[in-house]
């Protein structure tokens, strides 16, 4: 797995489940509401990581989320089919292994 910070976002109609994976640390998991304010809160949350990161997004409106949150210098974003990975932690691990 690469040493970049990896984030998984599993989106449903009700919530955005987030998992943050840093090398050598335990997974950090949290949830934001699936609303406009929730997305903005997530954007604030992601902006706090002042280092390159890799992000994998799956679920409801994944494309829109990826475009909204991924368009930042130093950030690699992957849109993942829920059939491949649907839970936030699995998505974070996917981001870590994706080429």
């Amino acid at each position: 797995m690469r040493s970049d910070l990896c984030i998984g976002i599993a989106s449903s109609r009700e919530a955005l489940d987030i998992a943050v994976l840093e090398p050598g640390k335990a997974v950090v998991a949290m949830r934001f509401p699936a609303t406009g304010m929730g997305v903005e809160g997530l954007r604030l949350f992601l902006s706090g990581y002042g280092r390159p990161l890799r992000m994998a997004v799956a679920g409801v409106a994944a494309l829109g989320l990826a475009l909204s949150l991924g368009n930042v210098c130093g950030r690699e974003t992957f849109i993942v089919s829920s059939a491949v990975a649907s839970r936030a932690e699995a998505l974070a691990r996917y981001a870590g292994h994706a080429a």
């Binding site: 943050v20 950090v28 949290m30 949830r31 934001f32 304010m37 929730g38 809160g41 604030l44 706090g48």
Partner: peptide, 13 residues
């Protein structure tokens, strides 16, 4: 610290 920020976002949502 990030969890606090996340809680704040959830709270005000």
């Amino acid at each position: 610290h990030f969890e606090i920020l996340a809680e704040a976002a959830r709270m005000f949502a």
